[in-house]
Lab assay of single mutants.
Amino acid sequence: EEEEKKKEEIARLLGVSKEDVERILKKNNLDIEQLLRRVQREN
């Protein structure tokens, strides 16, 4: 699934687990696209 791939990509870029990414998304109330763009910009 596309969303899972995005979570895995974010996890890889941040050096965290996919579960961490899911927690970040919930905690910050971000959607996956916003987080992915933010992470890609910083790297």
Rank of each mutant, 00 (worst) to 15 (best):
E2W: 12
K26I: 13
L13E: 03
L36H: 05
V16W: 06
N43L: 15
Q40D: 04
K27P: 01
D31Q: 07
L35E: 02
N43H: 14
L35Q: 01
K5S: 10
E4Y: 05
R23S: 11
E4P: 03
I24C: 08
R12L: 09
K7H: 03
E9Y: 14
L30R: 02
Q34K: 06
L25Y: 01
R38S: 14
L30G: 05
L25D: 00
S17H: 07
K6R: 05
V39E: 02
I24F: 08
E33K: 03
L14V: 02
R37Q: 15
S17A: 07
E22N: 11
Q34D: 14
N28H: 15
E8H: 10
A11T: 02
R41G: 14
K27A: 14
V16F: 03
S17E: 07
K26F: 10
Q34A: 13
L35Y: 05
I24W: 08
R23M: 13
K5A: 14
K18W: 06
V16R: 03
E4K: 07
K7A: 04
I24R: 02
E8R: 10
K5F: 11
R38H: 15
L25A: 10
E9D: 07
E8M: 14
K6A: 11
V39I: 11
R23A: 13
I32C: 05
L13M: 08
R23E: 13
R37N: 15
I32K: 01
K27G: 07
R37Y: 09
E4G: 07
E1T: 12
N43D: 08
E2L: 09
I24S: 02
E8K: 11
E3A: 13
I10V: 15
V21L: 03
D20R: 11
R37P: 01
I10Q: 00
E33H: 08
L13T: 04
L13G: 02
N43K: 08
N28A: 13
L30K: 02
K6M: 15
E1V: 12
R41Y: 10
I24V: 04
K27S: 11
E1C: 05
D31P: 05
Q34P: 01
E3L: 13
L35S: 00
D20K: 10
R37C: 08
L14S: 01
E42Y: 06
N28G: 11
Q40E: 11
E22T: 07
E1Y: 13
R12H: 08
N29P: 03
L35H: 01
K26S: 10
K18V: 13
Q34W: 10
G15Q: 08
E22D: 12
L30M: 14
K7R: 05
V21C: 00
K6F: 10
G15N: 10
D31N: 11
L30E: 14
K5E: 10
E2C: 06
R37S: 13
V39Q: 01
N29I: 04
L36S: 02
K6I: 15
E1M: 13
K5T: 09
K27H: 12
K6P: 02
E8S: 11
E9T: 13
R41N: 13
V21N: 00
E9G: 03
E33M: 05
E33T: 05
E3M: 13
V16M: 07
I24D: 02
L36G: 01
V21T: 01
L36K: 02
R23K: 11
E19N: 09
E3F: 13
V39R: 00
N29H: 12
I32W: 04
Q34M: 07
S17M: 06
S17I: 03
V16T: 06
V16E: 01
L36R: 03
K5I: 12
R23V: 14
V39D: 01
L35V: 03
S17Q: 07
E42D: 10
N29T: 05
K7V: 10
R41S: 14
N43V: 14
K26Q: 12
E2Y: 09
L35F: 09
L30Y: 11
R38A: 15
R37V: 14
R37D: 15
E9L: 15
E33V: 04
A11C: 06
D31L: 05
E4W: 06
D31T: 15
E22K: 03
I24P: 00
N28I: 08
A11S: 06
D20H: 12
E42P: 08
E1N: 13
K5G: 10
V16Y: 03
L25H: 01
L36P: 00
N29R: 09
K7S: 02
D20I: 14
K5Q: 12
E2N: 11
D20F: 14
K5H: 10
L13I: 14
V39A: 11
L30W: 14
K18E: 04
E19T: 11
V16H: 01
R41W: 07
E19Q: 12
V39N: 01
Q34I: 08
R12A: 09
R12Q: 08
I32M: 05
K26N: 08
K27M: 13
V16K: 05
S17N: 07
I32V: 15
K18T: 11
Q40M: 09
E9H: 12
L36W: 14
K18C: 07
I10P: 00
L25I: 09
V16N: 02
K7E: 02
K27L: 14
E2T: 12
K27F: 12
L14A: 02
N28C: 14
L25W: 01
D31G: 08
R37E: 15
L30D: 05
E33S: 05
K27Y: 12
V39W: 03
K5V: 11
L25M: 11
R23Q: 13
E19Y: 10
E8Q: 12
K7W: 05
L14P: 00
I10F: 02
I10D: 00
E2P: 08
N28Q: 12
E22Y: 03
S17K: 09
L36C: 05
L25N: 00
E22S: 05
D31S: 15
L14C: 06
E9S: 07
L25G: 01
E19L: 11
E3R: 14
K18F: 07
V39G: 01
L14D: 00
E3S: 11
E2I: 09
D31A: 06
E42V: 08
L35K: 00
E4Q: 08
N43P: 07
I24K: 02
K6T: 09
Q40V: 06
I24G: 01
K6D: 05
R41V: 08
V16Q: 03
N43M: 13
E42K: 02
E3P: 07
L14E: 00
N28P: 03
L25K: 02
V21R: 00
N43E: 09
R41E: 15
K5M: 12
R12T: 08
V21P: 00
K7D: 01
G15E: 04
L25V: 06
K26A: 12
R41K: 15
E1I: 12
A11L: 01
E3V: 13
E22A: 06
R37W: 08
Q40R: 09
L13P: 00
E3Q: 12
N43A: 13
S17P: 06
G15D: 04
K7I: 11
K7N: 01
K5R: 14
V21K: 00
G15Y: 03
V21S: 00
E9Q: 13
S17T: 14
K6W: 13
E2G: 11
A11Y: 01
G15F: 04
N28T: 15
Q40H: 07
D20W: 14
N43R: 04
D20S: 09
E42I: 09
R38N: 14
D20G: 04
I32F: 03
K7T: 04
E2M: 10
G15C: 06
L13N: 02
V21G: 00
K26M: 11
E8W: 12
E33P: 02
N29V: 04
G15L: 03
E4S: 08
D20T: 14
S17R: 09
N43W: 12
Q34L: 06
I32P: 13
I10G: 01
V21I: 08
E2H: 09
E42T: 07
A11N: 00
D20P: 00
K5Y: 10
E22L: 05
D31R: 05
I24H: 04
R23D: 13
E19H: 09
K26V: 13
E9R: 07
E4T: 09
E4N: 10
I10K: 00
Q34F: 05
L35N: 00
E1Q: 11
E33L: 04
A11P: 00
I10Y: 02
R41L: 11
E2S: 11
K18N: 05
E1R: 12
E42Q: 11
V21E: 00
S17L: 07
N43S: 12
R38Y: 15
Q34V: 11
E33N: 09
R38Q: 15
L35M: 05
K6S: 06
Q34N: 08
R38M: 15
V21Q: 00
E22I: 06
D20E: 15
R12Y: 10
K18R: 09
E42A: 09
R37K: 15
E19I: 10
D31I: 03
E19C: 08
V16P: 00
E8F: 09
E42S: 06
L36E: 04
E33G: 05
K26R: 13
K18Y: 07
E33D: 15
L25F: 01
N28K: 04
L25E: 00
A11G: 07
